[in-house]
Amino acid sequence: MLATLFSLSAALPASVSTDNSWINFDVTSLLQNFWPATFDGLTFGAIYALIALGYTLVYGVLNLINFAHSEVFIMGCYGVVFTLTSLGFGPNAPNLSIWAIIFNLILAMLVGMVFSVVTAFVVERVAYRPLRRRGASRLAFLITALGASFSIQYLIFLVRGSNAEPAVTMFIPTPIFQVFGAIIDSQQLTIVIAAIVMMVATDQYIRRTRVGRGIRAVAQDPDTATLMGVNKDRIIVTTFVIGGILAGAAALFYVMKVPSGVIYNGGFVLGIKAFAAAVLGGIGNVRGALLGGLLIGVIGNYGQLLLGDSQWTDVVAFIVLVLVLLIRPSGLLGQTLGRSRA
């Protein structure tokens, strides 16, 4: 018996259970995959940017970092997934006509938006408004924000458990055209263009409409704005609702891009990245959120290629964030919603 044991262990290669390679810079793979990584990064960046707008708008108006916004987003994802699942979508893409696909996408997006908006509205009512009425300190808001975030996360956990929702695939991305040898597919194009259109619309809405003027007024000076007849509470709710709508759209795009990514704590990392995007672009700045989102998406992808490990995606993105803030403390495009866009 002992002999068999010995011969067995001799036949085995030496056991290695730890990873002994440290950091290798894989420049070749970065160069080889530069363009695909760029376009994929831009797709993700567009999703980050849509979420980042929610952080930026609320910060601009309330000087509050709404940490529950990541849950506003993930609730939208659940809305999208529930809609699509009940329509019969699963891991396999069905063979549908173009009109059916579009109908389903829009329906799912609308339901996602409703889920997100309701969540945002409830968070504002339950977690922030009572504190505002009592003139609580900024730290108190920060704590309720975190509390709201965890409460919603674990509420989802209670209802849906700790497993990710099964994947829903709406259509198989097909190549549309090539840029620098990299294939741009239908999904990337849909996401990026739709996201940019929504962001431009938001920007114009804030710059040109009466409500937008109200938002900017409250951002500049809430007390004076109230004196001038702006209903501050209504403006604040509107801001939360706009953030919710954009998060709902981001939810659809995220589910398209990552069909199996909907899990109770799935909003957290995306929320942090979107928040970083908002800060990178200049928090409170609508265009900054777009720029920051796209940059965070692309830089993270480069980092992963260069270091050959997805654990580095976030590290690299945040190192860049810190470096930028060292040079431009107010972000790339400056800070305020009111002032710079007035």
């Binding site: 173009i98 696909i101 579009i102 996408l105 829009i106 997006m109 259509f171 991305p173 097909t174 549309i176 239908s186 194009l189 849909t190 263009i193 739709a194 996201a195 259109v197 929504m198 619309a201 759209a249």
Partner: peptide
């Protein structure tokens, strides 16, 4: 946004 999706999904 929906219109844009419609267009691109059309190409799809």
């Amino acid at each position: 946004a929906a219109a844009v999706m419609l267009l691109t999904a059309g190409c799809v």
